[in-house]
């Protein structure tokens, strides 16, 4: 399949004008597959961390959402052990008017504001709800342990 213009254009913009704290670089041999890095946002438990993600644009993108997953371990109520992300725009709230950049910005925002009421990782969410300070501490530890170079 030829690479749709839209993907080429998005890639060009991502490389030329990356969003702050976010980088997304396509694989040379598969331009639908991106290595993504998101820096932990300031004033979040993930501050100072550098998180690796993978992003894949399926055949019917942008009619279908990109597939995104954390590769770096992260202690977050909306991200599970497999790195899968609970984010509505990656599922039923996807719209073809959204793009890679907006998706990655949303994920960055999710790091700033974990939402334990809509959990993917139940044990983490439980922890977050019962003892938020303690959960944040764990998240900080994990960030130091797994997300620092």
């Amino acid at each position: 399949m030829a690479l749709p213009k839209r993907i080429i254009k998005e890639t060009e913009r991502l490389l030329a004008d990356p969003a702050p704290g976010i980088s997304a670089i396509p694989h040379e041999d598969n331009l639908r597959y991106f290595d993504v890095i998101i820096e932990g946002p300031n004033q979040s438990p993930f501050e100072g961390g550098v998180f690796k993600l993978e992003l894949f644009l399926p055949e019917d993108y942008p009619m279908a959402p990109p597939k995104v997953r954390f590769m770096t371990k992260i202690y977050h109520p909306n991200i599970d052990k497999l790195g899968r992300i609970c984010l509505d725009i990656l599922k039923d709230k996807w719209s073809p008017a959204l793009q890679i950049r907006t998706v990655l910005l949303s994920i960055q925002a999710l790091l700033s504001s974990p939402n334990p009421d809509d959990p993917l990782a139940n044990d983490v969410a439980q922890h977050w709800k019962e003892n938020e300070n303690n959960a944040i501490q764990t998240a900080q530890e994990w960030t130091r342990k797994y997300a620092t170079a």
Partner: peptide, 25 residues
């Protein structure tokens, strides 16, 4: 083509791959 400021920042290899992709159309 896009402005040179833009192009220059694209890593040479990916840039090349992209260009050949758009060219191949």
């Amino acid at each position: 083509f896009t402005p040179q400021q833009k192009r220059r920042r694209i890593s040479a290899r990916v840039g090349k791959a992209l260009l050949s992709a758009q060219r191949g159309r």
